[in-house]
Design a protein around this nucleic acid. Structure first.
Length: 808
RNA sequence: GCGGAUAUGGCGGAAUUGGUAGACGCGCUAGGUUCAGGUCCUAGUGCUCGCAAGGGCAUGGGGGUUCGAGUCCCUCUAUCCGCACCA
């Protein structure tokens, strides 16, 4: 059968579908001894077109899913749509199309494209977060969390565009202006809803120890959570008020020469009312854009009229407003110790403040011995901090802070999950009743691109009764951050049609935790922290068992074109759909798998690579075409010719290697090179080999099955051609046979003083002593050791090498 | 500024535990088949000295440990990614 992927692939895909080959079993159908494997990929945003990053992600996930099925696992491999968010609303503003229609169409288009790739998803489990059947449960979780006290309301800054009367997302703000209209954007406080993620900060940190994630991702999360231990300390102001600081270096207290407060600190805001200079400084800091604040290293401050009193010396300390102090970390106030903190030092030098040295040691910024610190002089840093906390009494206490912030989930947008609360004139903010869920998004809205959220224009949505007292009330118009949708979606896959609960515990117990999660490195902190947080909440609600949702994580590298990211603006996009139309799914899958290790960037330099993949598939087809299918059994090993034995040794060694690559190493590019090496070896079996048909049958059957996870369509066709029963994808993964794992002869490499000087062949059974003797007797080696004094001969375990050390 | 990573032929990469560096593929060269071309087949392809046999050098640079280093340690350089100045 000639290799014609474009006509063959759709027929094979239909066969898989007709046989329900991708269906995952519900808990009720699993046997007590069933081995399960949950293969999860990050669900796509339905932008309308798939891109090469999707192709890479889904191909790699599919290889694992298909391999695990062949290894006898029950496999869960679903896909869904992260379908709320900004682009749909932008399309509504720009093209006047309703976000729901735009989204539905995009999902249909992308699904068709993904299905052409032959990915083995159980489409019966497909979910889409924009549907009320899904977002109802976001609301339901919100109510459970409200009841547990995990939801609170507080003010936080938002990007406010006065000209539009709209809140903007960070990505809509470029250089401090609205990206679309160029209108000015300022920071403005707004009351919002929060999930109390910080409640789990310690557990989110310690849990990293029990999961098999890449070290760099774990490190990033550790830094993101950012636990630091120190002390809180209250300074009294001359005016009688108090200001609390957090410090990790209480031992440096005698070195304080100023206090630095955030420009948003209440004390600063209060004195700024009567201090025009200070007010101007604070406004200036607030106007600096996010990017600028990030990359700039300039420390700016403004002295306020406030003065603090040193708790031990009684000295008066100036209080500054400073741009490098953040209101949402610690207490929003820092004690400035210029001699022993780099930033404080820079600040003090700039504003001419004293720099008293109070620690003696190798490194000014590390622990040491206290000097010029009154009764604490002579103590070590740690002992001094303890002693100071004790002496300060209720003015100080040991404390721990985290960088991790609570999760602000309010969005002033239409296309998201409505937050299920009501504003009652009497009762205030009241949660909806569970039986009223879902609170649906209304249809009667206008998408103008200006003014407040479109939800505020829907009368049918706004008017409601207070769930507590029944009075006419106003419905909440904030919607949820879409990270809420993506923080539990993998559990909904397990029970997608359940209308009584988000999912049944029996299903989560049967399938969770996810065995392997593959997705982009860009989600290393945000999504993967939210997801871990949400799972812990689900556990505490009694809905799931275990502490961590994803046992193993792999982060794939980006797909680039000529060294830079593929993007519409650069016009360097290679459309997977066009590649599929020209070369077929198997060639694209093979190339994407082969071109680079999974965690590295993959540069799409041209079509040569995918043409190479097509050539390989053609050669493989030809091997099967040229072979006379036989039912003859493989003869005993001793009856085989040397070449036949060599091929079978290569075959069975490859089985061992590829099994390890797919099962434990997750090294996919080497799976393809292993298949290529094996196909080369099969092709080199001499035409006159005595048991050619039987040996070829044995080798080709196993080769085709191992090809199946990567190039499933070709493998399916070739399997049928070889007389294989049923579907290749349902066949068992080949087992390596011990008899063929060892060749009769072994190659031994001989080194003299570390340089390669000879290669000898010995019987595989040769002992270490025999190998040593053969090496020393080897003709190739003689010129190098003749007449020299042999110092020692090393034969490392395995016996693949003999290292001779000579003098001179 | 802080944090994380990477560096191997013309290119993508392999080397799984410190043990034959460059598997496999792309590209290129030569020959053949077909012949309008692509396709397809065969051989070659790290650099360098040599007619050859064979040698020397070589995993970003320098140093170290070792019988033996792409792999471990120190140091320098370059590049990429992330970020919330984290007290």
């Amino acid at each position: 059968m000639p290799f014609e992927p474009l006509s063959q692939e759709p027929a094979i895909q239909r066969r898989w579908m007709d046989e329900g080959a991708f269906r995952a079993k519900p808990a009720s159908e699993l046997l007590p001894d069933s081995k399960t494997f949950y293969m999860l990929v990050m669900l796509p945003y339905p932008s309308g077109r798939i891109h090469m990053g999707h192709v890479r992600n889904y191909t790699l996930g599919d290889i694992v899913a298909r391999f695990r099925r062949m290894r006898g696992f029950e496999v869960m491999h679903p896909l869904g749509w992260d379908s709320f968010g900004l682009p749909a609303e932008n399309a509504a503003i720009k093209h006047g199309i309703h976000p729901a229609i735009w989204t539905r169409q995009n999902i249909a288009d992308m699904k068709a494209q993904i299905q052409k790739m032959g990915i083995s998803y159980d489409w019966e489990r497909e979910v889409a977060s924009y549907l009320p059947e899904y977002y109802k449960w976001n609301q339901w979780f919100f109510l459970q969390m409200w009841r547990r006290g995990d939801v609170f309301r507080a003010e936080r800054m938002v990007n406010w565009c006065e000209a539009l009367g709209t809140v903007l997302a960070n990505e809509q703000v470029v250089d401090g202006k609205d990206e679309r209209t160029g209108a000015e954007v300022v920071q403005k406080p707004l009351e919002q809803y929060f999930f109390q993620t910080t409640k789990y900060a310690d557990e989110l940190l310690s849990g990293l120890g029990q999961i098999d994630w890449p070290e760099n991702v774990k490190t990033m999360q550790r830094h993101w959570i950012g636990k630091s231990e120190g002390a809180r300390l209250k300074f009294s102001l001359v005016t009688g008020e108090e200001v609390e600081v957090f410090t990790t270096r209480l031992d440096t207290l005698f070195g304080v020469s100023f206090l630095a407060l955030s420009t948003e600190h209440p004390l600063i805001e209060a004195v700024a009312k009567a201090d025009a200079g200070l007010k101007a400084f604070c406004d200036e800091v607030a106007a600096v854009s996010r990017e600028e604040r990030l990359t700039s290293d300039v420390k700016l401050g403004h002295r306020s009229a406030l003065e603090a009193i040193h708790p031990f010396t009684g000295a008066k300390i100036p209080v500054y407003a400073a741009n490098y102090v953040l209101m949402d970390y610690g207490t929003g106030a820092v004690m400035g110790v210029p001699a022993h903190d780099e930033r404080d030092g820079e600040f003090a030098a700039k504003y001419g403040l004293p720099i008293p040295k109070v620690i003696e040691g190798d490194d000014a910024f590390e622990h040491g011995t206290l000097v010029a610190s009154g009764e604490f002089s002579g103590l070590g840093s740690e002992a001094a901090a303890e002693a100071m906390v004790a002496k300060l009494g209720d003015r100080a206490a040991k404390a721990t802070t985290f960088k991790l912030k609570d999760w602000g989930l309010s969005r002033q947008r239409y296309w998201g999950t409505p937050i299920p609360t009501v504003h009652c004139p009497d009762c205030g903010v009241v949660p909806e009743k569970e039986e009223n869920l879902p609170i649906r998004l209304p249809e009667d809205v206008a998408f103008a691109g200006v003014g407040p959220s479109p939800l505020t224009t829907s009368k049918s949505f706004l008017d409601c009764a207070c769930p507590a007292c029944g009075k006419p009330s106003r419905r909440e118009t904030d919607t949820m951050d879409t990270f809420v949708d993506s923080s539990w979606y993998w559990m909904r896959y397990l029970d997608p049609k359940n209308d009584a609960l988000p999912f049944a515990k029996a299903e989560s117990d049967a399938w969770m935790p996810v065995d392997l999660y593959i997705g982009g490195i860009e989600h290393a902190t945000m999504h993967l922290i939210y997801a871990r947080y949400f799972f812990k909440v689900l556990r505490d609600l009694g809905m799931a068992s275990g502490d961590e949702p994803f046992t193993k994580l792999i982060c794939q590298g980006m797909v680039l074109k000529d060294g830079s990211k593929m993007s519409k603006s650069k016009g360097n996009i290679v459309d997977p759909d066009e590649v599929l139309a020209d070369y077929g799914a198997d060639a694209l899958r093979l190339f994407m798998t082969f071109a680079a290790p999974i965690e590295k960037e993959l540069d799409w330099t041209g079509f040569e690579g995918i043409e190479g993949a097509t050539r390989f598939l053609k050669r493989v087809s030809k091997l099967v075409d040229d072979h006379a299918v036989t039912a003859d059994a493989l003869p005993a090993k001793d009856a085989l010719s040397k070449e036949e034995k060599a091929l079978l040794v290569k075959l069975h060694q490859t089985i061992v290697r590829l099994t390890g690559d797919l099962e434990s190493r997750y090294s996919f590019n080497t799976v393809v090179s292993g298949l290529m090496e094996l196909s080369n070896a099969i092709g080199e079996l001499p035409a006159e080999a005595p048991h050619r048909a039987a040996v070829m049958q044995h080798a080709l059957e196993r080769f085709v099955l191992m090809l199946s996870p990567v190039a499933p369509h070709a493998a399916e066709a070739l399997w049928t051609q070889l007389g294989g029963k049923g579907l290749a994808m349902k066949a068992s993964w080949p087992e390596a046979e011990a008899a063929f794992l060892q060749a009769d002869e072994a190659l031994v490499v001989v080194q003299v003083n570390g340089k390669l000087r000879g290669r000898i062949t010995v019987a595989s059974s040769a002992t270490e002593e025999e190998r040593r003797a053969a090496a020393l007797a080897s003709e190739e080696v003689q010129p190098w050791i003749d007449g020299k004094e042999i110092v020692k001969v090393v034969v490392p375990p395995g016996g693949k090498l003999v290292s001779i050390v000579i003098k001179g």
